[in-house]
Amino acid sequence: MADGIIKPFVDENYWQYGVTKWIEWDMTSSARAIISGPSGSGKTVLATGITSKISRHLSGCEIFLLDYKNVDFAYLEGAKHYFKYDDCLEGFTQFYDIFEERLKQNTTYNWLVLYIDEYPSWLLSFPAKEQKEIMSKMARLLNLSRAKQIHIIVSAQKPLAEFFSVGSRESFSFKVLLQAPSKETINMLMPSYKDEIETCPTGVGYYTVNDANLTKIRVPFPQNVKAMHDDLWSAVNR
């Protein structure tokens, strides 16, 4: 596999005919991705797959992982850039400061990835004033990180507009919606396809790139979970 190319999920339409057609993401172009779906929809499996494959195929990358719930990624405890519960703000601040330093320079860097698990739950743990400060910084990251070898990936059960500064939610180039449980959720991320998207079983959903080419996808359950965890640990501990 070429460096920087990951295959996070398969085309569901082919899968139904017994054909495994992996969908490629080129991570050497700046990716701002949002993964949405209800609890039990497969978000954690997909997020683990994406981040672990980035770890393996994006040379020298560093991953900052913010795990407010301290549940699904607890195996990363002790890794340099793993932040849980109340420590997530420290991790976000460290990442943002690196981003601001990169803005001052015109050079090439190693890839830097921020993954925030259940972003809305973390954001709602703060008073209103601090929420606005975080949202402002998130908007700046989404708008200006493209040329600085930085990826932003978040997961959210419901990516309400109120969790993002005006217009910043639309800055996500990759959008994944698992299960598609309600028209309300569809309208948040993929309103142009509200008449095409159907409710799906766990691990099945839809994705778009720059709001185009709606594709039905499936997230296969990993065959070697330990290897995925080891790959992710390596990048989070750099």
Rank of each mutant, 00 (worst) to 15 (best):
Y119K: 01
S145M: 06
Y109N: 08
S168N: 09
Y14K: 14
D86A: 08
S36L: 03
I23D: 05
C88Y: 03
C61G: 10
S30R: 10
N224E: 12
L142H: 11
S52P: 00
W111P: 01
C61I: 10
R169Y: 06
F95E: 04
V236T: 02
I63E: 12
Y207Q: 09
N213D: 13
E12N: 11
N210T: 00
G167E: 05
I153W: 02
D26M: 11
K175V: 12
Q94A: 10
E170G: 13
P127T: 01
E12F: 13
R169C: 05
K183N: 09
S59A: 14
S41I: 03
F163Q: 02
Y109R: 08
E184Q: 13
A212M: 13
V19T: 12
A33P: 04
Q157Y: 03
K104H: 05
D231Q: 12
F163V: 01
D211H: 08
V166R: 13
I98W: 03
D3W: 15
H229R: 15
F99V: 04
I116H: 01
S41H: 09
K132E: 15
I186Y: 05
E133W: 00
T108N: 14
I186N: 01
S52F: 06
G78Y: 10
I152Q: 04
V10R: 12
W111I: 01
F64T: 14
Q149R: 15
A31N: 15
L46P: 04
K104W: 00
C88P: 00
I5Y: 14
V176P: 02
F9M: 13
F73M: 02
P181M: 10
A2Q: 14
R56M: 12
F163P: 03
L66N: 10
S234A: 10
S155Q: 07
I152K: 00
Q149V: 03
Y75C: 08
C200T: 08
V45N: 09
T93S: 09
G91W: 02
M138V: 14
I150D: 11
V113Y: 04
F172A: 05
F99D: 06
T93L: 04
A47K: 01
A128Q: 13
W122D: 00
M27Q: 09
M1P: 09
R140L: 03
N237H: 04
S52H: 00
Y193W: 11
A227R: 08
N237R: 06
K216M: 15
S155M: 06
I50E: 07
C200W: 00
I6K: 14
K183F: 03
W25L: 15
S39I: 08
M27I: 08
S192I: 04
D117K: 06
K158G: 00
R146P: 07
R32Y: 11
F99T: 04
V166T: 14
T28K: 15
H57S: 14
D97Y: 03
V166L: 08
S173K: 11
T199W: 01
M27V: 08
Y68K: 06
I98D: 12
A156M: 10
F9I: 07
N70H: 10
M27C: 15
P201F: 03
G91M: 02
L65P: 02
W15T: 12
M138K: 05
P127H: 09
P201T: 07
F95I: 02
D231I: 02
L89E: 11
D3R: 15
L123R: 02
P201D: 11
G42A: 05
S155F: 00
L66G: 12
L112D: 02
E130T: 15
C88V: 05
S55C: 09
L142E: 11
F95D: 01
E198T: 06
N70L: 08
